[in-house]
Design a protein around this nucleic acid. Structure first.
Lengths: 139, 139
DNA sequence: ACTATATACTTGCATTATACAACTATGTCG
DNA sequence: CGACATAGTTGTATAATGCAAGTATATAGT
C-alpha cells in the first residue's frame, strides 16, 4: 500500500507537532515561552493590535490571549494604548525591552534551527519555508 | 531587511505549531485525541512496542506514555503482552477495535487535510510531505 | 432618548497534557 | 549476595487552554 502525498503529510505533521511541542513546552528561551514569543513577534512585525485581533490570528480564545498579554505587560514587554474610538478596546505596543527580549529569543531559536538544518541544501530550506508559509496562509 | 530561509522557517513553524495545537487540542476526533492517535498509529505501523520505546520515539516522559497507553488499554484499543525475556516489560499490541478506530480517525483527518490542500499542486503536496519527513528524520 | 443587543475584554473554574520525583518490581554485574 | 540499573506506575505540581459569567462600552431599533 503506497501512501498518497496527503497521507504522508498527515502522519508527518502529527509526528512533527508532537516532537515540537515536547521540545518547546515549558522550556522558556530566556524569558519567553512559545506563546509569549509569538505574541511579541506578531505585535512587533504587524504593528500594534488588540486582544481580539490576536486571538483571531492565532485561532485561540480571547481569554487565553488576555492572560498572556497581561503577563507580557507585567514584564514590561508591551504597553496598552486605549483606542480613542472605542472605550472598550485598546491596542498593544511593544516596548524597547520587549524588542530586546524578542531579538534575544529569535537569536536562540535560529541557532537551534540552523544546527538542525545544517545538512539541508539551501534550496530545500527555501522550499520548506515557502511551503510552510503557504500552508499557514491557506484559510 | 530580507529574511534568510531559516528565519522564514523559524517564524512559519512557530505560527504553524500554534495553529495546529489550537485546532487539535481537546478536540477528539471520534474517540481519539492527538496523543492517542499517534500512539495507535505508531503501534499499528511499526509493530508492538513498550512504554519506553514509545516515550523515546515521541520524546516524551515515560509517565506520560504510561498513562496514555493505560487509557488506550482501558478503551480496548490495545492489549499488553508480557515480555518473556524481561518480567518488568510489556509490549503493546493493537486490537481489532483499535485498528478500526485508527482507520476512522485517519479518514477524518485526511478529509480535513485534503480540503485544506485542495488548491495545492500535487508537486507541492509531495514536496511538503518529503520535507516534513526529512525534518522529522533529522536527529 | 430608551431599551435591547452586541462587542471587547477580564476573571473564575474545570480540564488536560505534561514533567519530575518517589515508588515497585525485576534484571544484571561485581 | 549485594549494589546498582531499568521498565513501568503513580502522586503531585504546573501550565495552557476553553467555556461561562461578569463588566463596561457601543450600536441599532423603536
Amino acid at each position: 500500500m503506497t501512501k498518497t502525498p496527503i497521507e504522508s503529510i498527515e502522519i508527518e505533521l502529527a509526528v512533527f507537532i508532537r516532537r515540537f511541542i515536547a521540545a518547546t513546552t515549558n522550556k522558556k528561551v530566556g524569558n519567553l515561552d512559545r506563546a509569549a514569543y509569538l505574541l511579541l513577534h506578531q505585535i512587533s512585525s504587524h504593528g500594534s493590535a488588540g486582544v481580539k485581533a490576536l486571538a483571531e490570528e492565532f485561532h485561540l480564545d480571547m481569554s487565553t490571549i488576555s492572560r498572556q498579554t497581561a503577563a507580557l505587560e507585567q514584564k514590561g514587554y508591551v504597553f496598552r494604548i486605549p483606542d480613542p474610538q472605542d472605550g472598550r478596546a485598546y491596542s498593544l505596543q511593544i516596548t524597547e525591552s520587549g524588542i530586546a527580549e524578542l531579538a534575544l529569543n529569535k537569536q536562540l531559536r535560529l541557532a537551534y534551527l540552523t544546527k538542525h538544518l545544517q545538512d539541508w541544501t539551501s534550496e530545500d530550506q527555501i522550499r520548506f519555508g515557502e511551503l510552510l508559509h503557504k500552508f499557514n496562509s491557506t484559510p
